[in-house]
Amino acid sequence: MLFRGTATFAGSMVLIIIAAIAVFLVVKAIPAFQDDTENFFTFKEWFTDGDTPRFGIAATAFGTVLTAALALLIAVPVALGIALCLSHYAHRRVATTLSFIIDLLAAVPSVVFGLWGRDYFYEPVTNLSKWLHDTVGWLPIFGSEGPYGKSVLLGSIVLAIMILPIVTSLSREVFLQTPRENQEAALALGSTKWEMIRTAVIPYGKAGIIASVMLGLGRALGETIALALTLGSVFAINWDFLGPGGITIASNIANRFGEADEFGRSALIASGLVLFAITLVVNMAARAIVYRRREFVGSA
């Protein structure tokens, strides 16, 4: 009885908190929606001062999704590779030590990542950008003539490094949970180790992998400081990865909130509401993917 009460209370608290956040965001955002002289969802720029405020979420929302998606694209294959190495290939003692270090990496504050990434990767990313432009410049995403450096690419790489530990650490746990019987079944059929991993380990962990990727995506979408430090803050929608550009909802809020007046803050909160909606949709989509395969699911 006591447990049931506690569980119900804790469960409903989660819903209440989410609802409270949503209500707060909506209430604070209403003045901004009312006085915006442009379409909030399609306008790209952000001018909240003066008598005719003109601002919209389009560029920042696009930048948020673009940098997060690119970061996932870079981080997930690497993270899954590391996780499999640790769970199935490395010697146990090496694996334990490395896992510990990776968990430590997950605890590094994002501002440190941002500063480090900006200093450390600026040069390499500039060179990489030049090279990409020279070799595959006919692709629009690599079409920029420069200046290179602070770009979507740099931001995404730093973001990828930030989400790498969490995705690695969670998917390693998932891989380790594959039942011994299933792995032996695959081996006894004459599979190589890699075939066994493809037959038994990865399918079994699919739901867990999706969950870990979604957590990584959640972190990437909401990341603020690291991107404020590494992106070029250009309010535009283009698929240019190399040139100066990129802005995200969170980094825009971080850049402006301090100096914004009452109305400016309301506008920024309105953009926060959109971010909230995006993460909610992403999480629900992930849930749906996991749920759809529930009959076949090993861990979920």
Binding site: P179, E181, N182, E184, A186, L187, P203, Y204
Partner: peptide, 30 residues
Amino acid sequence: VRRMIGMVFQRPNPFPTMSIFDNVVAGLRL
């Protein structure tokens, strides 16, 4: 060697993520 020598284990261990059909043909696909 293992392809030549099939094995059935103590606890039934079909691949939980696969259908009946996919389980049967798992070895063939390999």
